[in-house]
């Protein structure tokens, strides 16, 4: 009970102090706000990039065309060889007759052309899927070497460009966010340092009347936490309203239907929760640094 009373008192003191030193706290709150807005943007981007990568992975496949005169046995051997690769998740065979029927159904021009040629000019094929988009290129190169394989198609340039863009984007955002978090923690450290200097008499009295170290330090740590949490309010609103509006404006996808955005419900609340936690942790980290450095007990 005593611990609870001391905690409640610390929260009360921290709130009072935040209000009393509002002009000082305001700068830290604003810095936290700006940082957390960027963190929110980063999280939203990263999550959507992740989702896009996943859907591209699902869509991306290798199409393996076999030689014209390939035998049934050779087809079986190619299939076994492809399936033996650990990264291969799915292999679907389509015979040249199936291709012919499909194309003839799709357009009468093809049907006329096939009738004119007489024999089927198409090739048997396998559609191969892999578990990681980054392994697409290597897998394709391997399949190309298998006996009976004529050619392999997998949109190599597009895949590599997308992977590079996403990788760079994620790294840049991560670096920016880490830098901003450090700056915010530093600002909060300064705010709490000034609070500590402001309250030297109080700290001195607390020491002399026998308050333990935790009781003296706790209000400052909670003040940092409060700054962090208040700083996360605007970013949460921006995330919730911003993402919902963005989602409805873009009709749920970016550029193409392949790049579907994450549905707002649940996602925005998860991001908001993350923002509160990050804000609180950065605030507490900043105040802990200040307490460690400037509060000599």
């Amino acid at each position: 009970m005593k611990a609870v009373r001391i905690f409640v008192r610390s929260v009360r003191d921290a709130l009072k102090s935040s209000i009393r030193n509002f002009s000082l706290s305001f700068a830290s709150i604003m810095c936290t706000t700006v940082t957390l807005i960027l963190v929110a943007v980063a999280i939203v981007c990263a999550a959507n990039v992740e989702k896009a990568t996943k859907s591209i992975e699902d869509e991306m496949s290798i199409v393996v065309y076999l030689n014209q005169n390939v035998t049934e046995e050779q087809i079986k051997n190619v299939e076994i060889d492809i399936k033996s690769r650990s990264m291969v998740t799915d292999v679907i065979f389509k015979s040249k007759d199936e291709w012919k029927m499909e194309l003839a159904k799709y357009s009468t021009t093809f049907e006329t052309a096939f009738n004119f040629i007489g024999e089927n000019p198409l090739m048997d094929s396998f559609t191969v899927k892999v578990d990681d988009i980054k392994k697409l290129s290597d897998t394709a190169k391997y399949i190309e070497t298998i006996d009976g394989v004529e050619t392999v198609k997998y949109g190599e340039e597009m895949v590599e460009t997308i992977i590079t863009i996403f990788d760079v984007l994620q790294k840049v955002v991560l670096v920016i966010v880490v830098c901003l978090l450090v700056v915010t923690a530093f600002l909060i450290t300064n705010t709490i340092k000034l609070t500590i200097l402001n309250r030297q008499s109080e700290i001195q009295i607390m020491r002399l009347v026998g308050a333990n170290n935790a009781t003296i330090k706790l209000p400052f740590i909670i003040e940092g936490l409060i700054i962090g949490i208040i700083g996360s309010i605007i970013p949460i609103c921006v995330t919730i309203y911003g993402y919902v509006i963005l989602y409805s404006r873009l009709e749920g996808h970016l550029f193409t239907n392949m790049l579907q955005l994450i549905k707002p419900y649940n996602f925005v609340f998860a991001v908001s929760f993350a923002l509160v936690i990050i804000g609180g942790l950065v605030g507490m980290y900043g105040s802990l640094r200040a307490v460690k450095k400037h509060l000599k007990i």
Binding site: R5, I205, V209
Partner: peptide, 24 residues
């Protein structure tokens, strides 16, 4: 002059010593 908290009343200044040690 330094050892009294100017924003607290006389009562609060004295009570402060007991609040710090967790009394009700």
């Amino acid at each position: 002059e330094i050892k009294l908290l100017t924003k607290l009343t006389v009562y609060e200044n004295v009570a402060f010593a007991l609040e710090c040690v967790g009394m009700t």
